[in-house]
Design a binder for these strands. Structure first.
Lengths: 206, 206
DNA sequence: AGGTAACCATACCGGTCTGTATACTCGCAG
DNA sequence: CTGCGAGTATACAGACCGGTATGGTTACCT
């Protein structure tokens, strides 16, 4: 089952295939640049962070940045690609060692653990919001692929398309409300909502 | 009931009170500026739009913009305030003339009608994503108030806090998935999810 | 007639943006 | 020992940013 999940991307349409491509190998300074960019992009937003700051934070120069990544847009896309990679690793690790009663609820546990230290919500939603109407930005397919992957995950975990869609809506809603909302009890309500959805879904969670 | 909803803000904590303040009266050029800013902000994002462009689009000057609004930040906050105002008006109008079977589902119908022509998702979530770590931005309380208002609306419509939270998660998730997701069947799945939540909530929708 | 608020037009400020260019050092493999 | 990839350092281009300053022109109100 988990083996199937880790290769879930290959079952998705061709447009989403690149997401599975292994992350490109980076030089030493390149890795520092991506790490610095990721932290800054997530915390302040991709438009609010300039390449000068990224290079300085990484202890290197703009020259190296452009030699390695070509453009800021490409760096943004790679940042999201790496983040998706890490989130899936975190998720699948948690699901592997989760208790058997419900892997679906395990996703929400993993989300809670993941977001515990991160106050800025979903990096993909944030990036999409900032890209505006530039639909041709290289990060857009990465964002869409991430959402499609999560939806496919819930479909697989619940074994039902409607139920998967329901839980996926709860998943995305949870992130939004936890971030921009006020409620501190979001996690509790989300878990209860998932239980209700699963109970009404007819099939027991696998 | 609807009378109660229209004054829902007054029941919220003091911090959210300013949201109820009537929209300030604008001069002629001021109104054009706000209208131009609203369209540009929503379509391209608040950071991507400069005050020069806003003034030019409105057929006026930066001088007038700063005379009327004081700062770009204040203009952003007012843009969101006006948008919240219009969304609530749209929503309450639709709920008033909705069929009796379920006002909760009516919210999702109103959302569908509202978002039909708008491709950029939730203006509040987008703005929050762009503001980054500047928590002192004047738009932040407007955003939080909007989410709190929607949550309070669902609480009132369902008559149950847990159920209101559940439906609110579905509501926020629907916007995200419809925008950044791929699924075209989001509306159908969302309605079905709401029906399940209501059926399991115990109390019939009012 | 006088005052005032609104508006238009234009120029400017310091700063920042992405991206490029030049010149140098270092380690290493052929 | 030579060539080259990688990295450092600095400077610069051209555009754009939010915000300010100056001045002139309506329209309305008392």
């Amino acid at each position: 089952m988990l083996q199937q999940l880790t290769t879930l991307d290959e079952a998705t349409p061709g447009a989403l295939r690149p997401v599975l491509q292994p992350l490109p190998k980076l030089t030493e300074a390149g890795a520092r640049l991506l790490e610095a960019a990721a932290a800054l992009f997530y915390e302040r937003g991709v438009r609010a962070v300039g390449v000068d700051l990224i290079a300085e934070t990484a202890g290197t120069t703009k020259k190296t940045l452009y030699d390695r990544f070509g453009s800021k847009d490409a760096l943004v896309a790679l940042y999201l690609l790496q983040r998706a990679h890490r989130w899936r690793q975190h998720l699948l690790t948690r699901l592997a060692e989760g208790d058997d009663e419900s892997r679906v609820l395990g996703v929400f546990d993993a989300l809670e653990a993941w977001m515990g230290a991160q106050r800025r919500g979903c990096a993909f939603v944030n990036a999409y919001a900032e890209l505006g109407d530039s639909e041709e930005h290289p990060a857009v397919p990465v964002i869409r692929a991430e959402k499609a992957w999560m939806r496919a995950l819930f479909d697989a975990l619940t074994g039902d398309i409607a139920l998967g869609a329901h839980v996926h809506l709860l998943y995305e809603g949870t992130i939004v409300v936890r971030t921009a909302g006020a409620g501190a009890d979001t996690a509790t309500h989300a878990r209860e909502a998932v239980r209700i959805a699963l109970a009404a879904g007819g099939s027991a969670p696998r």
